[in-house]
Design a binder for these strands. Structure first.
Lengths: 253, 253
DNA sequence: CACCATTGTGTGATTGTGACACAATGATAA
DNA sequence: TTATCATTGTGTCACAATCACACAATGGTG
């Protein structure tokens, strides 16, 4: 019961400083082992998983709140973040249900009756993320996108809509580099594309893919090669954000 | 002063039944005279124009609220509606400022301090819309997109983001038919495309454009021709939503 | 040091897109 | 009644982009 009181105080403080009817949910994508991953967490007292999310301070810009929440959760400062949809079903969320799930006494419910949630997706470099706990979190780790379990609230819908939005944008913008380490090989890049677009391995023709990628001015081949593999050492490449900005200026606007 | 009191009562009632921190703003697009139009309104007591918008009832689905607001404003029942972005700058809106603009006494401010707004854009058939007034509206009519004046709050930003989103979707989905009457000629369709994509007249090659459109299974040529023009009578066409659904199934998913 | 999975590159076939010209039409005006 | 003329409807060719495909070079492995 002591624990409950403490947690309740924390929640109370949080809510006093935040907007109550609006929250943020983040779908954090990472790429590892040729698999697209999402970061999920399990709250204390709950055995269901959910998306990392949070509340918006009363004086805080919506986007700043999203960055703050992600920083708190991943430790990362500058990440690619994209708002993709706002979820407003009138039954998507239920304050009393949350209290119950967290094993907290319902008569102290500080959660609002209803909350609309703004969905952001983030693209991060898997290896840099050290999933962070907070006072309500019991577990936090990566899941393969295909293996995402049944989540709390409408979070499954949020994940699937995020994935759809990601795929759509992926066709038109060079987003993939946010998911890879600074230096990577073309075959790694190809696997990333195949995975995100939901294609099977080698569905994309390796030669055509490489030709196409090399035709982009914003992809730089380094002198360095990746050693350690059992075969011919492939070149390493680097994404050049400045040149990509130039490229965008020339091809859009 | 009598008037003020009445309006205040109406607003009060409205706010008691609605979410207070969240609103909806709608960018209603129409097409007329080879021009893309947006529907704007001017509130009583204000000399600035703004987007039609409204509040979400506490028990109402976000999307239902958007449809309701549009129905109230355009009289139209089934319209193409698309959520495109949620605007959450912490200084985008100011409850007290609104009261001042409306010439209402500030000590009775019922507007929330801050509100985040979900942006929807709508595509409607210009000729079907009869702009509707409500108790706060003094004027409501169409503006050429290029001539949109300086608007209240961040509404200019909302319009420009809506236009950007519209153009982006326009490249990938057959949205244009929502803006045209049931029967139309190919040259009308071409003008619509040129206008929305921001191209000058005849920038698209008429022959190639027609060839492309006719290749789509969801566009039906009617026996009927459009008469009355001073020249050869062009065929009329109709968009077939069922066939378009089939087309989407075959070419996406 | 032979092996072999993997990398790096080039070429021809197919498809899609863009540029262009001419006959048919139908209201208008002589 | 008929010539005029802006506009409609359609076909062909050139070029670019994409796709399918093969072979020599490489660098650990055994």
């Amino acid at each position: 019961m002591e624990k409950f009181i403490t947690v309740l105080q924390d929640i109370k403080t949080l809510f006093n400083r935040s907007l109550s009817e609006l929250s943020i949910d983040c779908v954090v994508f990472g790429f590892h082992d040729e698999q697209l991953k999402v970061l999920l967490l399990r709250a204390k007292g709950s055995d269901s998983w959910m998306l990392p999310g949070g509340w918006i301070l009363k004086t805080e810009h919506l986007e700043d709140a999203a960055y703050r929440i992600l920083k708190e959760r991943t430790g990362l400062d500058s990440i690619f973040l994209q708002q993709f949809y706002t979820f407003g079903a009138n039954n998507r969320y239920n304050g009393k249900e949350i209290m119950a799930r967290l094993g907290l006494p319902q008569e102290h419910n500080f959660f609002p009756e209803r909350a609309v949630s703004v969905g952001y997706y983030a693209l991060v470099e898997y290896s840099l993320v050290e999933p962070q706990m907070d006072f309500m979190t019991e577990e936090c780790h990566w899941w393969d996108v295909q293996d995402v379990p049944e989540l709390l609230f409408d979070h499954n819908e949020i994940v699937s809509k995020a994935l759809k939005a990601l795929r759509k944008q992926f066709d038109h913008e060079a987003l993939g580099f946010n998911l890879l380490p600074e230096k990577f090989t073309l075959i790694e890049l190809q696997r990333l594309y195949e995975t995100i677009l939901g294609l099977e391995k080698d569905k994309l023709d390796r030669r055509n893919f490489q030709k196409k990628m090399l035709s982009y001015s914003f992809l730089e081949r380094l002198e360095e090669r990746k050693t350690g593999g059992a075969h011919k050492a492939p070149y390493l490449y680097r994404f050049n954000p400045e040149k990509y900005a130039d490229y965008l200026r020339e091809n859009e606007s």
